[in-house]
Design a protein around this nucleic acid. Structure first.
Lengths: 220, 220
DNA sequence: TTGACAACATACTCGGTAGTATGTCTACTT
DNA sequence: AAGTAGACATACTACCGAGTATGTTGTCAA
């Protein structure tokens, strides 16, 4: 817990000026709890024990704040899978590591990831103002690049004969769905350890790998 | 398509007075496109080519309309898996049929199911007024009973040694996540046939079954 | 034919919320 | 010591959207 938590904090600090970090954290919590549309700036301010003024001093608009949260969330993900991605190992092994790391990121930065999800959903429905559209497109692009990292490794694992499926794009959707699912149902338990979270991520990963046709998956 | 579409229409007609059906359909579309919170009653009215008056004549509030949509959605699901549930066959076979039928229901009544999902999410965040709370609890209860139908069959299949996993509740979450996922990424294609949708549902089903540890799954 | 009611449309109220304008205090510079 | 700027708080505006109150029109019963 301490290792990852501090890693996240460092990343947060590197991305935004100190002082905005707390705002982002509380905003992410609110967006997860009530959804973007139902969250008022005053809600976030209340959670901060401050007022609107503080938020609007740093962020131009509600959408601006939201995108900041989502972008930090994506940074978490890139950082999480980085080591596994570069590892020298068979594709199937890299894929498993990336999947696990991704899933752990979903669990340990859940509020941020929930905002990322909402951003993607908003994009799918297509309802946005022209100005926010650009920022949203950038987020989606980031998400696509991230997804492509998995795509490449998956294709390699298919060539190696370790996984197989009919429609690759659907397969990726299903894999991410399994790995992302803790976003929706994970709830930190009092007295929970890092091992507990790892067990969750492991089961999600094995489920996903097995779903992709890896015969060695879920044999535990 | 015609068979299922008419089945849905019949169910819709049996559940609500004729004339409300069109309202429910358009409302479901709006809720899917913009989300519950961002959908205004005027949006729904515009989609209907009418005004607020028509909607408020039949539904007491926006929340009332939403719950009506979600409840019809759940009725679709119960109806969809009914035949598979009663079938005389090994548990693993019933499970596969139920999973497939459920997934098809997600695809073919997508807007309704998206509302069901949102309802569950709203419940998870816990933010609602006391009055709507009761109606929401009923929806969640319906969802839980529905999930329990799968739980029973899954336990039987485990006893038969056809599937296996560590945490049953997580396993069920993951299975539903895979089966429900078309809610989010399915988009009807022009000129699409019922077979196309079945192919999608089949891949989701095989992914889910394989994820649950069924060694015969995804062997196609 | 006339009333009564269902199925809407029109016109309005009113609260909540995004965004703004302005004030205040502190720290730091020179 | 005075000036400046950052980091907020306070007070206000303007609008949007849920809900309501009140028409209007067609239909059907008696």
């Amino acid at each position: 817990m301490t290792a990852n938590a501090s890693a996240h904090s460092n990343l947060e600090r590197s991305l935004v000026e100190e002082g905005q970090v707390e705002i982002l954290r509380m905003a992410a919590q609110c967006f997860m709890d009530r959804g973007f549309a139902s969250t008022s700036i005053d809600d976030v301010a209340r959670r901060l024990g401050s007022t609107k003024g503080r938020i609007y001093h740093f962020f131009a608009s509600k959408a601006d704040l939201f995108f900041a949260v989502a972008e930090v969330g994506m940074e978490f993900n890139y950082a999480a899978i980085d080591a596994s991605l570069k590892k020298e190992a068979p594709a199937i092994e890299r894929l498993r590591d990336m999947a696990f790391a991704h899933c752990m990121s979903m669990i340990e930065t859940q509020p941020y990831q929930h905002s990322v999800w909402q951003g993607v959903e908003i994009h799918l429905r297509g309802s946005t103002t022209p100005e926010q559209r650009e920022r949203l497109n950038a987020l989606i692009e980031s998400r696509d690049r991230y997804s492509a990292l998995f795509k490449a490794v998956m294709e390699e694992a298919v060539r190696d004969g370790h996984i197989h499926y009919s429609d690759p794009s659907i397969a990726r959707q299903l894999m991410f769905m399994a790995l992302n699912s803790p976003i929706f149902w994970y709830k930190p338990r009092p007295g929970e350890t890092a091992q507990d979270r790892q067990r969750i991520a492991r089961q999600c990963t094995e489920f996903a790998l097995a779903g992709l046709g890896d015969p060695t998956a879920a044999k535990r």
